[in-house]
Structures are given as structure tokens and as C-alpha cells.
Amino acid sequence: MGFDLTGFDCDAFVRATLEEDLGVGLPGGGQDVTADSVIPADARFSGVMDSRDAIVVAGLPIAAAFFRALDPAMEIAFLAQEGQAVPAGTHLLHLSGNARAMLTAERSALNTVQHLSGIATMTRAYVEAMGESGCILLDTRKTIPGLRHLEKYATRMGGAQNHRMGLWDAAMIKDNHVLVAGDVGEAVRRARAAGVANVICEVDRIDQIEPALTAGASHLLLDNMDVPTLREAVALVAGRVPTEASGGIDLTTIGAKAATGVTYVSVGRLTQSAPAADIGLDFTPL
């Protein structure tokens, strides 16, 4: 199972994560003192990574990269697919190789799979709560610094689509931009005049919609609107641009908001608040 994610350097991520755990560059660092002192250098283990929860799987190829970084000859079998929903007790990965390498890489591999599978699992729950509305779930930029590409990958495994990846691939005009520009229309006009093709404009009142559209907004973010107001906004936009409901949305409210006719619903908690999945790794000496 390969892992090629545009904008993400897997080798650099694995190297930096292992160096952090090993204390590379710190006095006395650069080693796993427990494994190196307790486990013979030629000892071999087999291991099984399994889920203790029902989860949506994400991150197994990265876990494999951690083990192979320390033992290039590690034998690895993937027992589940990325994006697959599996019940508790499912075996995800089988390993066979150098025991020290397995023990040293174990926590980095598990942390990554637990975090990404937790995001994918929460995302799938939100997708299912939207029912048959036809609305599309989006993530946000509320990600842990340094992990954005991985976390947004995990939301895709859960069934969401990615919102803009960063500050570079779309303009998003929010209240503070409007505060400086003077009004919504002027803020949108400035972005368009600068040659920005994709201009997302946040509006929190019905009377801001028409000025934003007239100025050239290509996407409206309907912020913190209740269900009746969202329906009114969707009717006013009348399909001229995509619409997005955002703000304070959880599993109890997303179904009703998705059913208003908006194109998208965005949820920050997918990456901001997803709990880690309960995943373990058990070893057997060979």
C-alpha cells in the first residue's frame, strides 16, 4: 500500500517524528535506552496492530513507513484498507522483523494511526448524520500545526471533501477583512481586483448576500445562521454560487442544516476535537 500525498513529505515526517522521540541532538539522546538495553540486537518479533474500537481506518501506510525506517527488511501485511469502516477487534496490520526496530517505532506509528483514524471516524459519523440531503461535508483550517496535510487526508478517508488547504489557494473574506475594507462588497471587489479567482465570502446577515454576489464572490459562507435563515439565504442565492453553512455545527444540528439546501456544511471539530481511536499493537517473540 503506497502513500503519495501532494504537499506532504512522508520521509521527512517519519524522520522528524522518530528523531523527536529518540532525542536526536539532545545530551544523551539519539537512542532508545530501553529497547537497546533490554532487547538483543538480533531478536525478532511478529506483531499485530488491531482496533479496540469500531473505526474508520486512516494512516496505515505511514505506520508502515515508521517501521521500515528502522528496519528496511520489515515484512508488513496490510489487513485493512484506508477509509474502510471496521468493527472492534479488527486486525489492521501484521509485522515481522527486528524487535528493537518495532519497539522503537511503535509509539510513533500508533500515535499517527490513532489520531488519523479518530478524525476519519468522527468525519464518517458527521457524513452519516447528514442523511440523504446531498450536502457535502467540508473540513476547515483548524488543524494541528504541521499536520494539516495528514489531517485533511483523514477527513477525506471519512467521506468529507477538503476546504481550502491554506491561505494561498482561495481568498476567504471574514469579518475582520470587512472591518478594514468598510463593507462586504468592497472587500470582495478588492480581492477580485487583485486577480484572485476563488473568493469565498463569509456573511452573517441576509442583507450582505446581494452585495457580496454583485461584487463577484464565488462562494458564500453562511456563518452562524439558524435553519430558517439558512433556507432564506439559499433561496436568495438561487444557485448562483455554492453556499456553505458554518459555525457551531455538531452531530445534533448538522442534519437539519444540511437539509436546508446548502451546497456544503463545514465543521471545524473534525480536525480540532476528534478523539484518538483506541488501537493497539501486540508483539510475539520469534
Results as ranks from 00 to 15, higher is better:
Gly131Lys: 10
Leu103Lys: 04
Leu138Trp: 10
Glu106Gln: 15
Arg124Thr: 04
Ala120Arg: 04
His149Ser: 13
Met102Asn: 03
Ala105Trp: 01
Gly89Met: 09
Ala120Asn: 06
Ile144Arg: 10
Val113Tyr: 02
Ile144Tyr: 05
Leu138Tyr: 13
Arg100Lys: 14
Ser96Val: 13
Ile144Gln: 08
Leu116Ser: 07
Ala109Gly: 14
His149Met: 14
His91Phe: 01
Thr90Pro: 00
Ala125Pro: 01
His115Arg: 15
Leu103Arg: 02
Val127Trp: 02
Ala109Thr: 09
Ala120Lys: 03
Arg100Val: 06
Leu138Ala: 05
Ala129Phe: 07
Ser133Ile: 12
Met130Leu: 13
Leu116Asn: 05
Ser133Gly: 12
Gly134Lys: 11
Cys135Asn: 02
Gly89Ser: 14
Ser96Gly: 14
Thr90Lys: 14
Leu93Ser: 08
Glu128Ala: 15
Gly146Val: 14
Asn98Leu: 09
Ala129Gln: 08
His94Pro: 01
Gly97Glu: 07
Pro145Met: 09
Leu95Asn: 01
Leu92Arg: 00
Met122Ser: 08
Thr121Phe: 05
Gly146His: 10
Gln114Lys: 13
Asn111Met: 09
Ile119Val: 15
Ile136Cys: 09
Leu147Arg: 07
Ala99His: 03
Gly97Arg: 03
Leu95Ile: 14
Asn111Ala: 13
Met130Ile: 11
Met130Asn: 02
Lys142Leu: 13
Thr143Arg: 01
Leu103Gly: 01
Asp139His: 11
His91Trp: 02
Gln114Ala: 10
Thr140Tyr: 12
Ala99Cys: 12
Leu110Tyr: 05
Leu116Arg: 05
Tyr126Gln: 04
Leu103Trp: 03
Gly134Tyr: 05
Leu116Thr: 11
Leu95Cys: 07
Ala109Lys: 00
Thr121Lys: 03
His115Ser: 11
Ser117Val: 12
Leu137Asp: 06
Arg124Asn: 12
Arg100Tyr: 07
Tyr126Cys: 10
Ala129Ser: 12
Leu110Thr: 12
